[in-house]
Nucleic acid binder design. Structure first.
Lengths: 232, 232
DNA sequence: GCCTTTTTTTAGTCATGGCTAAAAATTTTA
DNA sequence: TAAAATTTTTAGCCATGACTAAAAAAAGGC
């Protein structure tokens, strides 16, 4: 009877555990493997705390963990992580679209909100927001089944060539500092530009808006802006 | 310098601490004094845990607490508690109005959401919802300054007399069980009725809807339904 | 292949917020 | 007013999730 209970009762994760799963998920995507140290940096804890938590997540069946080999997610763990990403991004859409927050101010709040409630809440929020495909930073929102559609044809703006016509569709850096810098440059998601000129000296570039306004974009900025080339 | 920091840095409360403040607030309103035992029941903990927490809240300046005398809130504590009530009720409005939840299903979620974020978030939510005055259960929502407008002229339906015409404006019991029972009786906030007959035998009553439908309402139900008598 | 450096783990602590069981204080009853 | 019942507190314990400092393991340099 007690054994049955274990099977019937869905495993509950603490917010802290959820953050670790999300961190492993991000690192798997970024560098293939989640080292102890990288995890410590992401969750803002010490490596010792990470070891401790990884053991728990492994015991609970959400991660695979071999000493000195780094962590990977199990199917269950990946599922949790994707759901968290979904929740995070949907709340960001809500905060920007409905509560009129600036795109650079929503991360911390979404980080709190993503731990609330279960599938019911998030699916209702999704419907209320009209099933958005992207969050305010251009990142794709996993659907209710956990499928993440990867952004097609997106490249870093630093890889564009003179004469290219493109639309800004995402950012690599979602920090408030970077996003506010884009605001100052008048660069926003969905805007179209033509790359007028690449300057060899500092690898910066001159972008032309459709209305003719010129923007000088440093290579450091361009590396963190994602674009889609358009046909013409 | 360190001393200044204390003055400048707003005191942060844990979710658990916030729940205690809310509980004291409710008990103060309901019975004037918050006994240790009543608090234990409300926050679902043991009296020993309550003693423990009350000492912390007293040290932090949010409650006054004399051994064996029960707890009261300080101005700071009351302020926190009212803000929590405001957050709770605004989230309930959001869940019912925007996410189409049933009124009997929102309490637990609002209980989680009320601990998220600060004034900025809740004031934006308030504006988004168009500054609602009442939550889905008819309870008044404190404004941004912490002013709670008490419901005027509300009485228990069990105090109505034969021939009285009234509008349902609130409930005393927000449990899912009771609210679903009201659903079955077709009783909802804002609906108008005439009290056709009081039955002496079991103190139940017959209500007539404007469209003529009859509802038999037990005294137990009537005691938990709040109404406003209308002129005619 | 050994020595140094880096990474990870162990061991021991701490704060939070619970718990139980027993003791103490208060209130009620007779 | 004294005994009984209730309420509150104390004392000691537990789990979670952090931390530090030291030990151990792995990786790199030569």
């Amino acid at each position: 009877m007690a054994k049955n209970f274990i099977y019937l009762c869905e495993m509950l994760l603490s917010p802290s555990q959820e953050n670790y799963l999300k961190a492993i998920y991000k690192l798997e995507a970024r560098e293939g493997i989640a080292t102890n140290q990288a995890l410590a940096a992401l969750v803002e804890a010490t490596p010792a705390s990470v070891t401790n938590m990884l053991r728990k997540l492994t015991d609970a069946g959400f991660a695979e963990y071999e000493a000195y080999q780094g962590a990977t997610l199990t199917a269950a763990g990946r599922n949790e992580a994707v759901t968290l990403v979904r929740k995070h991004r949907l709340w960001e859409v809500f905060l920007v679209e409905k509560l009129q927050y600036d795109w650079d101010a929503v991360h911390a709040l979404a980080e709190e909100l993503e731990h609330i409630g279960g599938d019911e809440l998030i699916n209702r929020l999704d419907a209320f927001l009209d099933h958005p495909a992207y969050d305010p930073h251009g990142d794709p929102i996993p659907n209710a089944k956990g499928v993440v559609r990867t952004r097609q044809h997106a490249i870093a703006a630093s890889d564009a060539k003179e004469g290219d016509v493109f639309v800004v569709c995402g950012v690599r850096d979602s920090s408030s500092l970077f996003l506010q810098h884009l605001d100052k440059l008048n660069i926003a998601l969905g805007k179209a530009y033509t790359l007028k000129e690449c300057l060899e000296f500092d690898r910066s570039a001159v972008w032309v808006e459709q209305e003719g306004a010129l923007t000088n974009v440093s290579n450091e900025v361009a590396k963190n802006v994602l674009i889609q080339l358009t046909d013409e």
